[in-house]
Amino acid sequence: MMRTPFDPPKKAPAHPALTRLGRGLFAALFYLLLWQGLAMLVGKEVYLPSPLRVMEVLWGLVQTGGFWLACLGSLLRVLLGFVLAVVFGAGLSLLTSFLPAARPLIAPALHVVKATPVASFILIALIWLPGNFVPVFIAFLMVLPVVWGNLCEGFQSADVQLLEAARVYRFSPQKTLRLVYLPAVQPYFFAACKTGAGLAWKAGIAAEALGRTAHSIGRGIYDSKMYLEIPQLFAYTAALILLSLAFERLLAAILRRAARARTKGAPHGK
């Protein structure tokens, strides 16, 4: 059949070896080789251990109960901080979006939180709170302005024409929220969760390290540095990256499922 100028350009057929998984493996292999090369070039484990050495140490760690306890502890703290931030961030965004008088009170405080270095908050929180709560509080504090800011933007992006239709057909506030605001907010909420999850891990582990929280990856990292166990520091970091990636993937799957469930929801009723 003849092609017209309006037909989309034909895509070159993907090479079978360059599937998504294949591309991922290729990239991983490339960076592992680069790391190995640099480690050989440096030649000192205390500066840069080789990937093989790190894997060896990681294998040793995963065979200990303490490692898994540290992973579980960190996961629970980061998760708790993250969930609290999402809940409070959503509540505050509703408040500032629909109660204009609340905005001048809440917005500056959250902007200050966003601009303040995380290290300052950690050191202050270490004075105020028991050690176990510091990573939870820090993860919460770092994610809160992100969720709040994104959701406020989402609420502002709601379609004004649909809002007018909702008023004409006398929707209840709940129905307006469900049919107009939630679809508008959804992409902003997903983006906030994705960014927030990464931030929660970074800030939470930093707090664990500075606070030397018991049963935590942060403490493992800090102790490794203290005793110059650099391969162990790298091993903990690798475990942390894997844990954070798994967390983000799981979160994305949950959000996708929630979005599908909401789309299928019954629309009737005032």
Binding site: Q161, L162, E164, A165, Y169, R170, L179, V180, P183, T263, P267, H268, G269, K270
Partner: peptide, 20 residues
């Protein structure tokens, strides 16, 4: 309205009954 202003996530039937 001058524009259709249908709710994009609702079916035709759900849109037609959206006023209750």
């Amino acid at each position: 309205f001058q524009e259709d202003r249908l709710f994009p996530q609702l079916t035709a039937l759900q849109n037609a009954a959206v006023s209750g």
